[in-house]
Design a protein around this nucleic acid. Structure first.
Lengths: 232, 232
DNA sequence: ATTACTATAGCTCGAGTAG
DNA sequence: TCTACTCGAGCTATAGTAA
């Protein structure tokens, strides 16, 4: 038999368990009516009722129907289901150290985009204000080789960072850019920039600074550098 | 409009994204045919094809159809979806320190179950061998008050611990029990026991030792103690 | 080998409603 | 109010194919 339908059901149940867990059902029984749960999950009361019955039948939760709703507790099997997804996701996004991130990258030729964007007044003014330097018109592009580093790079996307707001200049709109202060070989102030929309692959990271970084550091294509990023 | 159907679809997509991510699509494009993906997810080739098309349409992945399959990459929106679930689950299961876990609990009256189980030869012999003491027939039951502590308790369930195997004595079967070495106020050797099946709530933790812990520590119901658990 | 269209069997959801 | 049953409308999965 096809297990997909079963897996799909589990993913659906995950959604409900997440809601219940967020209501505190992992810790102590919670009292909730099918109506309220239905509102939280944006489904009909009937569906909420049915789902809870199914979950009880599968031993994922225990229920006790009272006058004004039900007392629901997530049972071990339910916790296991949550932990299973937790583990799979954690395995994918391995934890990073807080505060600082170190990435190794190889210098590669950019697309010339950086030069273009770093010359736009809308960005320049904000970078000066928020990062403390007037950006040299051009970016240093580093290609990440290591799987670990690419995962870190992905982590960066979810961190708040320093927001360089987008703008429109009458012709087109320019998107938000996220930035993190950084340094290479002790040389700073530098910053990593992550445009909201980018044509680069996830394995490329762009570095800006108040000077031509390649020249200042004597770098050429293919050189490997360590980049320290301050997550602040 | 009901958002539940939308949430359900997202949970379903999570399942597929997880499979793709586990194949490495977060890092670099992966080459896979709808047939192979269908096998992995235990669905029909047609469904795999449709799902991928839907996900592409929603901007979650990018595809490039080649002669022998497709080149698939998870795009930012897809990564966001994974991170969203990751964050929600992490929020529920906060990270614990490795090696040692400290829990605070209040002494409560047990159900008399502990006394019964700790007298069974099948368990006693194993405890002696694996934990290094002959258990006193009775358990100290601690009620966890703190949310943080209950979350830690939940974490314990997923850690390997020391396995005390279940057995059958001709009449009924006795389930596996997981144990962790522990101490209270510097007094040891003690151990925390987590039966596979238990009638206790998730906020109760059972402690065993080679002596009557209540007497030895002069504890009475309502006393608060700190329990150190060795996760080994 | 691929991907993907069409048609249908089967499943799910929620309105109506009972208890 | 509550939970939960029935049943039809609508959605989803896959077998059969085409390209």
């Amino acid at each position: 038999m096809k297990r997909w339908i079963f897996r799909k059901k589990r993913a659906e149940i995950l959604e409900i368990l997440l809601a219940l867990a967020e209501l505190g059902a992992l810790i102590k029984p919670i009292e909730i009516s099918t109506n309220k749960l239905a509102k939280i999950l944006d489904m009909s009361q009937q569906s909420a009722s049915r789902k809870l019955r199914e979950m009880e039948k599968e031993g994922l939760i225990s229920r006790e129907i009272t006058a004004l709703g039900e007392k629901i507790r997530i049972r071990n099997a339910g916790i296991s289901l949550l932990l299973e997804y937790h583990d799979r996701l954690c395995e994918i996004f391995r934890k990073i150290k807080p505060g600082i991130m170190v990435l190794k990258g190889v210098v590669v030729r950019g697309l010339g985009e950086g030069r273009y964007y770093m010359a736009l007044k809308g960005y320049v003014a904000q970078i000066k204000e928020k990062l403390g330097f007037k950006p040299y018109p051009g970016t240093l592009n580093l290609k990440l080789k290591n799987t670990e580093d690419i995962l870190k790079r992905i982590e960066l996307q979810r961190l708040p960072g320093i927001l360089i707001k987008g703008f429109l200049d009458g012709v087109r709109t320019y998107g938000d850019v996220k930035a993190f202060k950084a340094e290479i070989n002790g040389i700073k102030p530098l910053a990593v920039v992550l445009p909201e929309r980018t044509s680069h692959g996830i394995d490329i990271i762009e570095v800006i600074g108040p000077f031509n970084i390649r020249e200042k550091l004597g770098l050429k294509n293919g050189d490997e550098v360590s980049l320290i990023i301050y997550l602040q």
